[in-house]
Lab assay of single mutants.
Amino acid sequence: NQESVVAAQLIPINTALTLVMMTTRVVSPTGIPAEDIPRLISMQVNQVVPMGTTLMPDMVKGYA
């Protein structure tokens, strides 16, 4: 089963992602794949992401 990127903390809107903000977990439905974490660093979220929420492609500016 593929791991997806999950918020390790509350991420406010327009925050640039850092490694410490993200963790990985096997979730359903699947979100952004864990191997894309290096690509996500410094990208901004376009909404508030509560802790434990799976990051979906449409939540990250410039990802999709």
Rank of each mutant, 00 (worst) to 15 (best):
Q9V: 05
Q47H: 14
I41L: 13
A64E: 11
M43D: 05
L19Y: 13
V20R: 07
Q2F: 13
T23F: 06
P33Q: 07
Q47V: 07
T24H: 14
M22E: 01
M51Y: 07
P12Y: 04
M56S: 08
A34L: 15
Y63F: 13
V20P: 07
T54H: 02
A64T: 15
V45R: 00
M56E: 09
V48W: 08
A7Y: 01
V60I: 11
E35I: 08
S4F: 04
E35Y: 06
R25V: 14
G52V: 02
N1I: 15
Q9I: 04
V26A: 11
A16K: 12
L40F: 02
V26E: 15
V45H: 00
I11E: 00
N14I: 03
I41C: 03
E3C: 12
M43Y: 12
D36M: 11
Q9P: 01
N46H: 11
E35L: 05
V60K: 01
R39W: 05
S42L: 03
R25W: 06
V27F: 02
T53D: 11
Q9G: 05
L19T: 10
I11F: 01
L55P: 01
Q9C: 04
Q2R: 02
M59L: 04
A8K: 10
Q9Y: 04
L55I: 13
A16R: 04
M43C: 04
M22Y: 01
N1W: 05
K61Q: 07
G52E: 12
T23H: 14
R25Y: 15
L19A: 13
V6M: 05
Q44V: 10
N1M: 15
V26F: 11
G62W: 06
N46R: 12
V5R: 00
T18R: 04
L10Q: 10
I11M: 05
G31F: 02
Q2N: 15
I32H: 01
L19Q: 13
T30Y: 13
V49L: 08
P50C: 11
L17M: 07
T24I: 10
L55E: 00
M59I: 11
Q2E: 15
V5W: 01
L17C: 01
S28Y: 09
V49W: 02
S28G: 08
P33H: 08
M22V: 12
L19S: 10
Q44C: 11
S42M: 05
V48S: 15
T18D: 08
P29K: 04
T30R: 02
G62Y: 05
M21S: 04
V6Y: 03
P12I: 03
N14K: 08
T15V: 04
M21Y: 06
T15D: 04
N1V: 15
L10N: 13
G52P: 01
A16D: 06
N46M: 05
V60M: 05
V27M: 08
T24A: 13
V5D: 00
Q47W: 04
M56K: 14
Q47R: 12
P57Y: 05
T53S: 14
P29G: 12
N46E: 08
I13P: 10
V20G: 08
L19G: 08
P50W: 09
T24E: 13
R25M: 15
G31T: 02
L10A: 10
L10F: 07
R39G: 10
V5C: 03
K61G: 08
Y63D: 06
P33N: 06
L55W: 01
T15R: 04
L55A: 01
P57E: 12
T24M: 13
P12A: 10
G62D: 12
P38G: 13
I41A: 08
I13Y: 12
Q47G: 07
T53Y: 12
V48A: 11
V5A: 10
L40K: 00
R25G: 15
M22N: 01
T30V: 15
A8P: 01
S4Y: 15
S4H: 02
L40W: 01
M59H: 09
T18M: 03
K61V: 09
L17S: 00
L40P: 00
Q47A: 08
M56T: 12
L10I: 08
G31Q: 05
L17F: 02
P38W: 05
M59P: 01
I13A: 08
L55R: 01
I11L: 12
M21L: 12
P38A: 03
A64K: 15
I41H: 03
I32S: 01
L10W: 14
A7V: 03
P38K: 06
L55Q: 01
A34M: 12
V26S: 15
T18Y: 03
L10D: 11
N1A: 15
I32M: 03
V48K: 09
P38F: 11
I37P: 00
G62N: 15
E35N: 14
P33C: 14
P29I: 14
Q2A: 15
Q47N: 06
I13M: 09
T54E: 02
S42Q: 10
T54W: 02
N46T: 10
V27A: 15
S4C: 09
Q44H: 09
M22P: 01
P12W: 12
V5T: 05
T53P: 02
A64S: 12
I13N: 14
P29Y: 04
Q44S: 08
V45P: 03
M59Q: 06
P33W: 09
S28C: 15
V45M: 03
P50L: 10
I11R: 00
A8H: 11
G52A: 06
E35G: 07
P12G: 15
A7I: 02
P38I: 10
V6L: 08
V49R: 02
A7N: 00
Y63R: 03
P38M: 05
P50T: 12
